[in-house]
Each structure stands twice: as C-alpha cells, then as structure tokens.
Design a protein around this nucleic acid. Structure first.
Lengths: 127, 127
DNA sequence: CTATAATTTCGACAGGTGTCGAAGTAAGGA
DNA sequence: TCCTTACTTCGACACCTGTCGAAATTATAG
C-alpha cells in the first residue's frame, strides 16, 4: 500500500472549513509560537547538541532578563511544544516533535518540494 | 539529481538556530494566523469552491460585525497570506499558497508520515 | 441623481501580552 | 550553617489587539 489516498489538493487548512473549536485550539498553539523570542528559543533548543538545552545556554543569546526568558519557556511548555526538567543545578528543555509537526501539517500543501517518489502531481491552487 | 541533500533530521526550525531578523519576520507571519477567526477565514477562503470567497460568504459564519471581519481580512492580506479584489458590488479573496506553504515548511519534520521511498530513517529526536 | 447595498476606515475601549525588578525556591559548595 | 548560583513566581506597567458603532467609500438600481 503506497497510495490509497485520493491525492487531495492544498494544505489541510484549505481543504475544508475549520471547525470553531478546532480553530480555537490551533490558534492557541500558533500564538505560542508567534513570537520572535519564542521562535528563537524553540529553534535554539531543537538545534542544540543532544536535542536539549539548559536555560543558561539560552538566556545569554537575548537582551532580556531571566524572568522574561522563563516566561517564554513557560508559554512554550504550556502549549506542549517543549518539556523540561531540573537536573541538579540546571534546568533542561527539549522539543516535543509531535506538537511541532502538528503545526506544520496544517499548512503543508500535500508534498514537499522533496525528491518525492510517486505519482505526485502537485498543483497548489488553480490560482 | 534526486537527492544531493544529506537527509537532515528534524524540522527546519529545529535544525539550526533561527537568526534574529528571520525570527522576527516569521513571527509576524505566524501572528497573522494565530487567531481563531483568521484561521477560520483562511480555511473558509481556501476551501471555497473556485478557490475564492466573497466577503459576504464569510461574514455570516461569525458572530462578528462586518468591520471586525474586514479587519481580520486586512491582517491576513497585509501578511501576504491572502489577496483580493473588488468585482462589481462584491469583494473576493483568495489564498496565496506560497505564503501558507512557507509556514508549513518551518515545522514539517522532513518527511510526512507518508510511504516514503528511499533510505529514510527518520528519527525526530533522540528524546 | 438619489437610494440602497457591500465593504472599508476611523475612533474608542476593554482585555491580553511582553517586559522588568523584586522576591521566592532549589541545589551545591565553603 | 550560610552563601552563592540558577531559575521561577509575583506585581506592576506600557503597549498591542480584538471588538464595536458610526461614518466614509464604492458600485448598482431606480
């Protein structure tokens, strides 16, 4: 089974009208990520060697106080985008890839501009 | 040439630390979409037959006044997510798929849960 | 040319959000 | 035990944002 799917067009968000509750939930997730600092935090955590970063590694990269960084990390954590734990003196955070992928899945237009194998005949929209 | 890429792991956002300017720009895009009403508007426009929708079609689906809907449409348009034009009495809007796809590209973890063909050994993160 | 309908712009206001400094908590070291 | 370091919580404040009603704009119909 390689392609039982009817190869639909467009991103999921453009395929069928979003329900009210679903929209509210997704908007919450998006709000968490719709901030330059949090976007960079997420990126720094995810790209850190080992897949996790200590808060001390993150704070120095910003012109912000520790409470502010802590606040942003809390927002990301509450949204389910990262998780973390204290290990001795330091607190480490890591990305929850499932949640990140959920965001991407909303907007991807079906297939990446990747070396897709298969009968991919992507047309984004008839314009 | 089908795959000169070294098959990287993770979503782009988790691959390398986002630059400050890039983060600011992307956050702007995300802010535009981080609202339940705008998310639904985008979805309704994109899924409308013909790929475009009249404002009159959109307004009725919400418990909001026309000025408010107009405001949200303006936010989406300013962000480059939709465009529109007046045709006679009505104003029509349509999605700009490029911009939507750009959002998705940030978060997709490389390959979809699709029947990927190739030496794909996706592990999102070593947890 | 006036009336009517569709949409946008404008001003105003309540509520949400990012930031800080000060204080609190937790762990390690002298 | 007390001090220092790492991080979080708490209050406060400026600013941004979603919403509305009223008025302006654009186009069609009489």
């Amino acid at each position: 089974m390689a392609a039982p799917t009817p190869v639909p067009c467009c991103a999921p968000i453009a395929r069928a009208p979003l329900a009210e509750t679903e929209a509210a939930e997704l908007a919450g997730l998006l709000k968490a990520v719709a901030d330059p600092v949090r976007l960079r935090l997420l990126s720094m955590i995810g790209s850190h060697p080992g897949g996790e970063a200590c808060v001390c590694d993150l704070t120095d990269a910003f012109d912000l106080t520790a409470p502010t960084i802590s606040h942003h990390l809390k927002v990301l954590r509450t949204a389910g985008l990262i998780d973390g734990e204290r290990r001795g003196t330091w607190v480490y955070y890591w990305i929850i890839p499932e949640t990140v992928a959920r965001l991407g899945a909303l907007f991807i237009p079906l297939a990446e501009p990747a070396p897709a194998a298969g009968p991919v005949d992507v047309e984004l929209l008839p314009a």
